[in-house]
Amino acid sequence: MTLVVTDGCLSCVHMDCMEVCREDCFYEGEGKSVRHPDEWIDCEPECSDKAIFLDIASGLDIWLVLNAKSASAWPSVAIKRNPSADAKAFNGEANKLAKYFSPESELGA
């Protein structure tokens, strides 16, 4: 099993997860953070945006691919910073991937 970052993190990036993570398992870029699926450490998701789930939840296939591809290209993040200035406006908004990002370009399809 692994933890998967989903669209609750898009444009918010509060970084609660990074602050409590024992390893440098998170990667950041383009207004979101991700985890590489192969870098599982036995921990519970910590996310004020409820954006991180165990991969056993249904409907996470696209997010597993997006996390793996992005984590391979983005730098690791280990230090919590302030969220983006407009994070509150995006927090809790549904279906952000379809609204603000192109899955085809993100996934190289």
Rank of each mutant, 00 (worst) to 15 (best):
D55M: 05
G59T: 02
A89K: 05
S102C: 15
Y100T: 06
G59C: 00
A51T: 04
Y100H: 15
D42C: 08
M15L: 03
L107G: 07
N82W: 09
D7S: 01
S102M: 08
M15V: 02
K96F: 01
N67W: 12
F90S: 11
G8E: 10
V77T: 14
G92K: 09
R81G: 12
M15D: 02
I52V: 07
D86F: 11
D7M: 07
C17N: 04
A71S: 13
A78I: 04
N91Y: 03
K32P: 00
F90T: 09
P45K: 10
D24V: 10
S58W: 10
N82Y: 13
K96G: 02
N95H: 14
A89F: 05
N95A: 09
L10C: 10
L64H: 14
K32D: 02
C47K: 00
A68C: 08
I41W: 06
A78Q: 10
A73C: 12
C47H: 01
P103D: 01
V5R: 09
L3W: 02
E104H: 10
E39T: 04
A87K: 07
A73G: 07
I52H: 00
D42F: 02
C21P: 10
K50M: 04
V20K: 02
W40H: 13
A89E: 08
E44I: 01
D49P: 00
E44D: 06
C9E: 00
L54I: 06
I52G: 02
M18Q: 12
E39Y: 07
E104P: 00
G92N: 13
E104Q: 13
S11L: 13
C47S: 03
G31F: 00
V4K: 02
C12R: 10
W40Y: 15
C12T: 03
D49H: 04
P45C: 00
M1N: 04
V4S: 04
D42K: 07
L64R: 15
F53M: 03
S105L: 12
D55L: 07
A98S: 15
R81L: 12
M15K: 08
V13Y: 00
A85E: 15
A109M: 14
S76Y: 03
C43R: 06
G29A: 12
A87I: 04
E39M: 15
S102Q: 08
A109Y: 10
I62L: 15
P75Q: 11
D61K: 15
E19M: 06
H14V: 06
S11Y: 10
E30T: 01
E106N: 04
F26E: 01
K50Y: 11
K88Q: 02
A57P: 00
K32Q: 14
